[in-house]
Design a protein around this nucleic acid. Sequence first.
DNA 1: ATGAAAGCGCTAACAA
DNA 2: TTGTTAGCGCTTTCAT
Lengths: 356, 356
Amino acid sequence: MDQRKASNAKRGGAPTSADVARLAGVSQATISLVLNGRASKVRISEETRKRVISAAAQLGYTPNHAARSLRQRSTKIITFVLPTLENPYYSDIVSAAQIAAQQHGYAVSVIPARTKPGEFHALSLLQGAAFDGIVVAGRENCAAPELLQLAARGVAVVALQERSPDPSIYSVSVDLEAGGYLATRHLIELGHRRIAHVMEELPRPDTWRDRVDGYRRALAEAGLPLDPSLVVITENSMAGGCKAIEQLLLDRQRPTAAFMYNDQMAVGALHALRTHGLRVPDDFAVVGFDGLAMGQFTAPPLTTIDHPRRDIGRIVIETLIGAIEKGSLEVKQHLLPVKLLVRESCGGLEAPNQKP
Amino acid sequence: MDQRKASNAKRGGAPTSADVARLAGVSQATISLVLNGRASKVRISEETRKRVISAAAQLGYTPNHAARSLRQRSTKIITFVLPTLENPYYSDIVSAAQIAAQQHGYAVSVIPARTKPGEFHALSLLQGAAFDGIVVAGRENCAAPELLQLAARGVAVVALQERSPDPSIYSVSVDLEAGGYLATRHLIELGHRRIAHVMEELPRPDTWRDRVDGYRRALAEAGLPLDPSLVVITENSMAGGCKAIEQLLLDRQRPTAAFMYNDQMAVGALHALRTHGLRVPDDFAVVGFDGLAMGQFTAPPLTTIDHPRRDIGRIVIETLIGAIEKGSLEVKQHLLPVKLLVRESCGGLEAPNQKP
DNA sequence: ATGAAAGCGCTAACAA
DNA sequence: TTGTTAGCGCTTTCAT
């Protein structure tokens, strides 16, 4: 009776490396060596190698993730902590990240966590070292103090669109200020003088330049006054954009254009304008922000500020893996450029009224 | 020198239960008992309990996920394997699932995996027992043969919108056939006679009743012929919907209405119609499928078939956790009802032309 | 070229 | 009431 332990596979669970070892007539160590590709470089005869491979295949063996992670102190998983899956904005970022991560042997997952201030959802997982790296998006999530602690413990963390005061948290962002400037300047060039900006509530106005700062800069540059009643704060959703525009239309001195915080809000804006009988762009112009695919199919198609989302995804992963494997990186902050994507919601396509 | 091992915390990693034990002057086992709430019921004096709690807090201790999973043979994570994050369809499902899961002590994650036939992305994670339960969506993903193997190894798996031939895979679906019927009958009641159906390519036509079967039934019930040239297959995206409609408009015997596979395609359809100068619903009616929030903001707002997405999320989790904890469940298949959501893309709101 | 053995951090019997 | 001990499944020296 040499069979000291019952085969795990027999017990209904997944086969273990011990099961494979038994079947192949070798030791567990050999299984590990062969299956991790260290066989050729180090030692292990071709014959045993084949025997191991075939035994593993026969049992359908896959290494247990928890055991491997425990032993190697690394899970080879990078996770995105996203505020919502409702906005397809992150879709391309995550796809690009997945492709990049895969090339380095990492998997990527997503944890939806709409953090209310003070609570951070999937926290125990993050703190429990279930991931080698994490990408945090959303203002509330990025502001969570726990991130610092995570970084201190050696988890690589990058914040999307948020610059952390602490250098242990990397950041990959898009130049929001430039985007706001581009959008607003576009409207000014098209002859608009009363331009509204509809935005989400921003908790910390001085920390970080956002769209609204570019909006101000463009206005100032053109010698236009900044009318506070033209800057409206609303909930970040299509419905929010819709409500904000309705409010603006009530004004006795209506604006003739609006620069919206993002494409979702812009869709709401378009809807509100349509509902109130205003033609876009003839009666009112709208610029979005993000460059979602959806913008091609709105009525009319949306002029917007396009983000290099695939680049964001790729750079996030390169940063994270660099940090995980090298420990620390030179460049902590990435700032990516945006560009104006002219479609039809502002006019200016056929008869452009460009700056000289 | 009693300090046999260096504290892990000192080494820059996360503190371990041994670190907490040392600080509190108790054994590791006590830490485990206290922190898992077994202290009160079982034993452990109030005084040690407090000491442990405070030591843990002081170090910022969180149990290592890999170690705990390895020991308990359970990760307490349920993951969704989704084909894409582009379609916000899954957003509500995942949110509802997360809430339900949390009540049972499980976390939920998402793995984006657009499986091409023959390859299954995050497979090694799934097979490596990194998750206690998995929810698979998307035709290709659900068709992966590896799912059976997973189920055989004791991972609970539910397929969304796909019935597996194997009873070890649970399913939670929406009544697509009824949806197709409702959508088509609505158009018929509104007086349409030539009604198109734009759909995604369906690999296995006989396995499972889909929208197109309901479309056929409604047509047959009304004594209308099924014209094969009115059923067009296209890519599942806004652009696909757009192209399909353009193709239909070329027909010498144009349809006057289209039932679209989902809301995303319907958005593309609306765009194509607008581009070609057709008014919706006066010249052409459109029905969508899914009930996305976006449908409220299209031009015109989209009449669609609404899915009980939050119920889906909740039931998926109840099924999964039932399966994980009880082993096996009575009811393997859930079929949820849909309902017609009348907005404006078919007319029929002011002057309804209802069936008697 | 391969095996034996230790140990990652945790929990659960079993002792004391 | 608390400590000791034995693994969970894997990788990795170190022997052989």
